[in-house]
């Protein structure tokens, strides 16, 4: 751990709750690198999370931190950002957190385009509750509630975010530190709603239940089940394999964010209330 990361950690709150081999530590490290590289004011950064393994990240992060309820982190963050627009608000969610119980808040946050950065630590399973099926569990994969294999179709969160209108949409993996840092910096710098789907691996449940081996072998699994979107387009122009997840930046469009539009409208109607 370098000093660059240490200054953003609450060392008294260590050790964290994550299992050995969990990818969440790698993601958090990349996030702290990105925050450090961008030179953000530590006092003006808020990290807001939901419930689940990913939701525990803020406990160890030395920013203004809030661990909210399951699925609602984006709604809490919406209130926080609207009343305190100078804060840089980063939202950390798990995949079940963001797309099952919090799916409604997720799509509406994409649509509303408030200036928030949303990161999903996507391990395709419910870790903290003991390895149950998530909306992101790939078809056929086993979990404690799909012991014979998942018969549902998995959510592709990137396509969901694109369809819901997010201005910045990217996917990376906890295997690729350099790409994570690059994408996180782009997402945090984006004015408007920015979403990064971070594919990661849960060795304790997803790995064990699907015979994927040791944590290092799960990193290989992440590497082998993802591919840069341009490579997929080049190599499989007609029908890319359904289980190959594209990585990359899928959209990066500046559009006027909710906060800016609200301020303009407030200015235009100033003093025009009825009372």
């Amino acid at each position: 751990m370098s000093d660059q990361h240490r200054r953003f950690l609450r060392l008294r709150q260590l050790p964290h709750v994550w299992c050995p081999g969990c990818g969440n530590g790698s993601i958090v490290k990349a996030l702290l690198t990105a925050i450090g590289d961008l030179g953000l004011d530590q006092d003006r950064v808020a990290v807001i999370s939901g419930i689940g393994c990913a939701g525990r990240a803020p406990f160890i992060l030395d920013f203004n931190t809030m661990h909210t309820t399951h699925g609602r982190a984006l709604a809490f963050a919406t209130g926080m950002k609207l009343v305190n627009p100078d804060l840089k608000v980063i939202v950390i969610m798990g995949d079940g957190d963001a797309s099952a119980i919090g799916g409604n808040h997720f799509i509406h946050s994409c649509r509303r385009n408030l200036d928030l950065t949303a990161l999903v630590f996507n391990n395709g399973i419910y870790g903290l509750t003991g390895g149950q099926l998530a909306p992101t569990t790939p078809a056929g994969k086993r979990s404690t509630t799909s012991m014979s294999g998942n018969i549902e179709h998995a959510f592709d969160l990137v396509r969901l975010a694109l369809g819901a209108g997010a201005g910045f949409v990217a996917r990376t993996t906890s295997y690729d530190n350099k790409q994570m840092v690059t994408f996180f910096k782009r997402a945090i710098s984006h004015k408007g709603f920015a979403f990064v789907d971070v594919m990661t691996a849960c060795p304790t449940y997803f790995g064990r239940m699907n015979d994927l081996g040791e944590p290092y072998e799960l990193l290989h699994y992440l590497r082998d089940t993802t591919s840069p979107s341009e490579d997929i387009a080049r190599e499989h122009d007609e029908s890319p394999p359904a289980d190959l997840m594209p990585t990359g930046i899928f959209r990066d469009e500046e559009r006027r964010d909710y906060g800016t539009l609200y301020s303009q409208r407030a200015l235009a109607t100033s003093g025009k209330g009825r009372s």
Binding site: T68, T78, M80, L82, L87, H105, H108, R265
Partner: peptide, 27 residues
């Protein structure tokens, strides 16, 4: 908006209460 205060219509009531709690901690 006319008084320089913030109003937002949320996607449901769970989001509404969550947003005001976030807003309270925002000051």
């Amino acid at each position: 908006p006319a008084q320089g205060r913030v109003f937002i219509q949320m996607e449901d009531e769970i989001a509404s209460i969550s947003a005001i709690i976030g807003g309270a901690w925002g000051g």
